[in-house]
Computed example of a mutant assay.
Amino acid sequence: MRLAVAPNGDVLLGWIEKAQEAGQPYGQDVHVARYAQGQWQHLGGALNYSRPREATTLDLAIDAQGRPLLAWNENLDHVDLHVVRSFQNGTWTDWDARRLGQDLTYAARVRRVASSAGEAVMVWGIQNTHMPGTLLVVQTWDGVTWRRSPPLNSGRQVALLPAIALNTAGAPVVTWLEGDAATSAVLVKRWTGTAWQALGGALNRRPNTYTFAPALRLDGAGRPVVAWLEDQDGIDTLFVKRWTGVAWQALGDALNVRTESPAGRPALALDAQGRVTVAWAEGLDGSRQVYAKRWDGKTWRGLGGGALSTSGRDAGFTDLGIGPDGRTYVAWQEQTAGGHVARVVELHSP
Rank of each mutant, 00 (worst) to 15 (best):
76 L>Q: 14
83 V>R: 01
101 G>L: 03
94 D>R: 04
68 P>I: 02
72 W>I: 07
97 A>N: 14
84 V>I: 12
59 D>Q: 14
77 D>R: 12
86 S>V: 00
97 A>Q: 14
101 G>H: 00
87 F>N: 02
69 L>A: 05
77 D>I: 08
100 L>V: 05
81 L>Y: 07
96 D>H: 11
98 R>G: 10
98 R>M: 15
93 T>D: 11
101 G>D: 04
91 T>S: 15
90 G>Q: 13
57 T>F: 07
94 D>L: 08
67 R>H: 11
78 H>C: 11
101 G>Q: 02
84 V>D: 04
65 Q>N: 05
75 N>S: 10
70 L>K: 03
66 G>I: 02
92 W>P: 04
85 R>T: 03
62 I>D: 01
76 L>W: 14
80 D>V: 04
82 H>L: 15
87 F>T: 01
92 W>H: 02
88 Q>L: 15
75 N>C: 09
55 A>S: 15
80 D>S: 07
63 D>C: 13
77 D>A: 14
58 L>D: 06
68 P>T: 02
84 V>L: 06
85 R>N: 06
72 W>K: 01
101 G>Y: 00
97 A>Y: 12
77 D>V: 07
95 W>C: 05
72 W>L: 06
57 T>W: 07
89 N>T: 15
64 A>D: 12
94 D>Y: 07
83 V>A: 11
84 V>G: 02
91 T>I: 13
81 L>K: 00
95 W>H: 10
99 R>T: 14
63 D>S: 09
62 I>V: 12
100 L>K: 03
62 I>Y: 00
80 D>K: 02
74 E>T: 04
92 W>C: 07
86 S>P: 07
69 L>K: 00
64 A>V: 07
83 V>W: 05
81 L>S: 06
56 T>I: 05
60 L>E: 08
75 N>L: 13
89 N>S: 15
67 R>T: 08
64 A>S: 14
94 D>C: 10
77 D>Q: 14
56 T>A: 08
93 T>Q: 06
76 L>S: 14
97 A>C: 08
58 L>N: 05
90 G>S: 14
100 L>R: 01
84 V>F: 09
74 E>H: 04
65 Q>E: 04
95 W>F: 11
63 D>M: 08
71 A>F: 00
82 H>F: 10
86 S>F: 03
82 H>T: 11
83 V>P: 01
71 A>P: 02
79 V>I: 10
69 L>Q: 05
82 H>C: 09
72 W>N: 01
75 N>W: 08
85 R>M: 05
98 R>D: 11
59 D>I: 02
56 T>P: 00
78 H>G: 12
70 L>Q: 05
80 D>R: 01
70 L>D: 09
86 S>M: 00
65 Q>A: 01
74 E>S: 11
85 R>F: 05
96 D>P: 02
98 R>Y: 08
65 Q>P: 00
75 N>K: 11
74 E>P: 07
80 D>H: 06
100 L>I: 07
97 A>R: 12
89 N>Q: 15
74 E>V: 10
79 V>D: 09
57 T>C: 06
70 L>N: 05
